[in-house]
Amino acid sequence: MAQTPGEAPINPLPPVVVALFLMIVGVEVVFSLGARGVVGGPGAVGWRLAALERYGFSSELFRWMFETGQFRPQHLLRLVSYPFVHGSFTHAAFAGVMLLALGKMVGEALGDVRTIAVFVASALGGAVIFGVLAPGRALLIGAFPAIYGLIGAFTYMLWLRLGQVGEQQLRAFTLIGVLLGLQLIFGLLFGGGPDWIADIGGFVVGFALTIVLVPGGWARLRDRLRHR
Rank of each mutant, 00 (worst) to 15 (best):
A2I: 14
E7D: 11
I10K: 02
P12R: 11
P12A: 12
G26R: 11
V27T: 13
V30P: 10
F31V: 13
V38D: 14
V39Q: 10
V39S: 14
G41Y: 12
A44Y: 08
G46E: 12
R48M: 12
A50F: 07
A51T: 11
L52T: 01
E53D: 09
F62K: 01
W64V: 15
M65Y: 06
M65T: 04
E67P: 04
T68N: 12
F71M: 10
P73Y: 06
P83A: 05
F84H: 03
A92L: 04
F94E: 03
A95W: 00
V97D: 00
V97S: 05
A101M: 14
L102W: 11
M105I: 14
L110N: 07
G111R: 06
I116T: 05
F119W: 05
F119T: 00
A121W: 01
G126W: 06
V128M: 04
V128D: 00
G131N: 00
G136L: 06
G136W: 03
A138N: 02
A138D: 04
L140M: 06
L140Y: 01
A143K: 00
I147L: 06
L150C: 06
T155H: 02
T155E: 04
R161C: 09
L162A: 13
E167Y: 14
Q168I: 15
Q169E: 15
Q169T: 15
R171A: 14
T174D: 12
T174F: 14
L180E: 04
G181V: 05
L182P: 00
Q183E: 09
F186K: 09
F186E: 08
L188E: 14
G192D: 03
W196P: 01
V204P: 03
V205R: 04
G206C: 07
A208P: 07
L209F: 11
I211Y: 07
V214P: 09
A219S: 15
D223Y: 13
D223C: 01
D223F: 10
H227S: 13
